[in-house]
Design a protein around this nucleic acid. Structure first.
Length: 128
RNA sequence: GGGACGAAUCGGUCUAUCGCCAGGAAAACAUCCUGGAGGAAAGUCCGGGCAACGCAGGGCAAUGCACCCUGAGAAAAUCAGGGGAUUAAAGUUGUAAAGCUUUAAGACAGCAAGUGUAGCAGAAAAUAACCGCCUCGUUUCGGGGUAAGGGUGAAAAUGUGGAGUAAGAGACCACGGGUUUAGACGGUAACGUUUAAAUGGUACAAACCUUGCAUGUUGAAAGACCAAGUAAACCUUAGUUAUGGAGUUGCCCGCUCCUUGCUUCGGCAACUAAGGAGGGUAGGUUGAUUGAUCCAUGGGGCGACCCCUGGACCAGAUAAAUGAUAGACAUUCAAACCUUGUGUUUGGAUACAGAACCCGGCUUACAGAUUUGUCCCUUUU
RNA sequence: UGCCCUGUGGUGUAACUGGAAACAUGUGAGAUUUCGACUCUCGUGACACGGGUUCGACUCCUGUCAGGGCAA
């Protein structure tokens, strides 16, 4: 099974600012919304990801934590599919936002991720 | 046996597979081992530790707390034990005012220091005459006396009886009750019991206020170190240059510091205020997890809690770990079945809620289980 | 994480330190008009929730809930 390493988590404040400044590409499939930007910097991993859940949709901290954990688990399950479609020597910064207002199971989130990757693969090939 | 309300304690367990965070094994994102949310982690309502800045001293202001005593505690709008008044409910004594007993409650200092407020109703809401009563006169009316009786109201000027009077009244007397002061006895004390003297006073301080006590401000996005960078920079306008400027918690007094300019007379320099145009950092380590800590034996105390001895190390992340899936068990609810057993099968439910520097409290949320107190219902003896 | 503020009709605001809730707009019915607009008349509709102080609370105090703001 694929692992999700600490170096694959997005932590740099600059990169996060870049994603949410409005210049990033955007892919959506309910209940998930994916922001991403590309950079040419070579690094250990081919992507970095962060997960976010709105306090407006989930006022209680317990629910927010649960949804972030489930998103992380579903992302981890689909990690090999993402690695296949990414080109080498490019780094992708991803921000996954949960836009639903009710809790979802890991299975449905996993399905959503695989559909998201199909759309993402199309977009990337168009650009290239 | 059941139910309601209150209080205290606990608040799911195990297995498999795949993962996340921290520490250790010389090093590593591989491998192995160890550990990994709460009683409220919550609200941010109090009190501290810790840190930076400030601080000769005095006054005012502001804010908070305050029923009292003894004890516990680092402290607290904290805790334990006790005492008093008030309010509410039930019972009871009394002609009444009011008292006594039990239970419960709470943010219980002072209205007998001053000021203020008390709508409507009512004559009058704190220097009380509407009706009534008594009396006088010029008798369908007016003057005077009167707080016994009526009516209004949340509240109407200490209750009952006596004496007294034209009629009446704490104006007077006896008893009761309220407040204040002093003495005696009991108690560590708050206070209680009792005796004597004085007094006549509506309520509201969660109205201003008064009294007592306490308080410097800010808050881990504090702060320290390393790396990198550097700006105490530039422009415009106004003011000041000594009868000044700055600092000094919000204000004042006071105190401390700077300066006592240069000049070729155009300015320069310094400080302050306002505006403009720009620039830099936000990476890492630390703070930061050994502490008013937790567990056990024994001892002291009604209790809060304390002492002795021994043992343990028990989350430490930082765009933020503590999880996902499957199964079994446990508790409980409902339905079905027949073997009526604390049976089997099926289905459902298992709360409130997630550490963010750390402790002590308070408040609020909470499925279910256990223990316990009060009340009610029912059954048996 | 720390600090601070605000809750009144559907909407926007009042009620001067306690005596029972007012205005504008919206909305319903009617009048006016050939029909409609404007205008006029009569209605409708609220103190976030719980507790306390007080004879009496939108107001004072307190606890929840909701909404909002500030902080290198």
């Amino acid at each position: 099974m694929a692992r999700l390493l600490k170096s694959e988590r997005l932590k740099s404040r600059d990169r996060i600012q870049e994603i949410f400044s409005g210049n990033s590409e955007r892919v959506g499939k309910y209940p998930l919304l994916l922001f991403y930007t590309k950079s040419d910097e070579a690094s250990a991993s081919s992507f970095q990801v962060l997960f976010s859940v709105s306090k407006r949709n989930f006022p209680r901290a317990v629910d927010r934590n649960t949804m972030k954990r489930r998103m992380r688990e579903a992302f981890r399950a689909n990690k090999t599919a993402l690695n296949d479609l990414l080109p080498l020597n490019n780094q992708l910064a991803l921000a996954v936002i949960y836009t639903g207002k009710e809790l979802s199971s890991v299975d449905s989130l996993s399905n959503t991720f695989s559909k998201l990757y199909e759309i993402l693969a199309q977009r990337l090939s168009e650009i290239n």
